[in-house]
């Protein structure tokens, strides 16, 4: 029963991947290999597709694998099951946070976790920056076009409160024209 297999596999993936979409990739790979759902090349393609399409990487990957394995229903089953653990767990946590937000233990935990969240987000920025801001043949080894785009966008969003969607569209155009 392929739907059931997809459901359990992606539910497991959704339940055990901490730290967002990229952390999920090795787990997905393991499940795909265990069930012989896709070839290695197809799996690499999925990651490329997930990167090139908007939306959570987890959802992109689940939809794609499900669709390839068992058509439209397969895509729906995988997508729902990868999101389900998050949905249930977050609802419970949200209730608890509301109830205990003034409790000293909760205050202490949040006091320590908030700065870690800042570090995690900064780290994500560093990883993306690594793939785009450097160029081997550029002046000082940097890619000045993408640095300009990034600086322009940063000023636009912080100083002029430009809408992020507008910036994404402008950057797509700039990328198409300038490179």
């Amino acid at each position: 029963m392929v739907y059931l297999q997809l459901f359990f596999s992606f539910f497991k993936i959704g339940l055990f991947s901490f730290g967002g979409g990229y952390a999920m990739i090795p787990l997905v790979q393991k499940e795909i290999e265990a069930h012989n759902w896709l070839t290695a090349q197809e799996f690499v393609d999925i990651i490329a597709v997930a990167e090139a399409t908007p939306g959570p990487i987890a959802v992109n990957t689940a939809t794609f694998v499900g669709f390839k394995t068992a058509g439209l229903m397969g895509g729906a089953v995988s997508t729902i099951s990868v999101a389900l653990p998050s949905f249930i767990i977050v609802l419970f946590i949200a209730k608890a946070v509301k109830k205990f937000s003034e409790h000293p233990v909760m205050k202490g935990l949040l006091y320590g976790i908030r700065p870690v969240v800042i570090s995690l987000i900064l780290l994500a920025a560093v990883f993306v920056a690594k793939t785009v801001l450097f160029a081997q043949n550029g002046f000082l080894g940097l890619d000045w076009i993408s640095i300009s785009i990034a600086v322009f966008a940063l000023v636009g969003i912080i100083k002029f409160k430009m809408h992020p969607i507008l910036l994404i569209i402008l950057a797509a155009l700039a990328g198409g024209i300038l490179y």
């Binding site: 600086v151 990328g175 300038l178």
Partner: peptide, 27 residues
């Protein structure tokens, strides 16, 4: 590839902007 290269540069800026915005309430 070109289009996504441009988008990725903005993604860096977007993530850094998130850090800026949340810095005061975390630190």
């Amino acid at each position: 590839l070109k289009v996504f290269y441009g988008i990725r540069a903005v993604v860096v800026a977007l993530i850094v902007a998130a850090v800026f915005k949340m810095f005061k309430s975390c630190i």
